Computed example of a mutant assay.
Amino acid sequence: MTQPSSGHKAGAFDIRIFISMLIGLYGVVLVATGLVGTSDDELARADGVNINLWAGLGMIVFAACFLAWARLRPVVVPDDEQRSEGDETP
């Protein structure tokens, strides 16, 4: 008697991976802009806060949390056999 398999993980096709990569990339660009391209005039307009740096760091942390969520709770895609057994629609 064989036990039915539980399916396979979505892996790289999980949408959370794409979202975390995109937000992480934007975060890295903002951190680089905040570290290199911020002038004193821009800091004065933002009340002394390097907004690019802080927003970029926040986006990197968010992307890391999203990636951890995707790794810790992966989406399981049912196998074809399980899909056909559980489907009631024609």
Score class of each variant (00 low, 15 high):
Ala63Glu: 07
Gly7Met: 02
Arg45His: 07
His8Phe: 06
Trp54Glu: 11
Val77Glu: 00
Leu53Lys: 05
Arg16Cys: 00
Tyr26Trp: 11
Met1Gly: 12
Ile19Met: 14
Pro4Thr: 08
Arg73Gln: 14
Met59Pro: 06
Met59Phe: 13
Ala63Gly: 10
Ala10Leu: 08
Val76Arg: 15
Asn50Phe: 01
Val61Pro: 14
Ile17Pro: 07
Gly48Ala: 04
Cys65Pro: 05
Glu81Gly: 12
Ser20Val: 03
Ala55Phe: 07
Asp41Pro: 15
Met59Leu: 11
Pro74Ser: 01
Ala46Gln: 14
Leu43Glu: 03
Val29Arg: 10
Ile17Gln: 14
Gly34Arg: 04
Phe18Val: 07
Asp79Trp: 02
Gly56His: 06
Ile17Asp: 15
Gly58Ile: 00
Val29Gln: 08
Val49Met: 03
Ile19Asn: 11
Ile23Gln: 15
Asp41Val: 15
Thr33Met: 06
Ser6Asp: 04
Asp47Trp: 13
Asp41Arg: 12
Ser39Leu: 06
Arg45Leu: 11
Gln82Pro: 03
Asp40Cys: 02
Phe18His: 12
Asp40Thr: 13
Glu42Met: 06
Asn52Lys: 04
Ile60Lys: 06
Ser39Trp: 09
Gly27Tyr: 01
Thr33Pro: 05
Met21Ser: 08
Thr2Tyr: 00
Ser39Pro: 15
Asp79Cys: 03
Asp80Arg: 15
Gly56Leu: 03
Met21Phe: 07
Cys65Trp: 08
Ile23Cys: 13
Ile19Arg: 15
Val31Phe: 08
Ala32Lys: 05
Glu81Ile: 01
Ala10Thr: 00
Pro78Arg: 02
Phe66Gln: 13
Ser20Lys: 06
Gly48Asp: 09
Asp47Leu: 05
Trp69Ala: 11
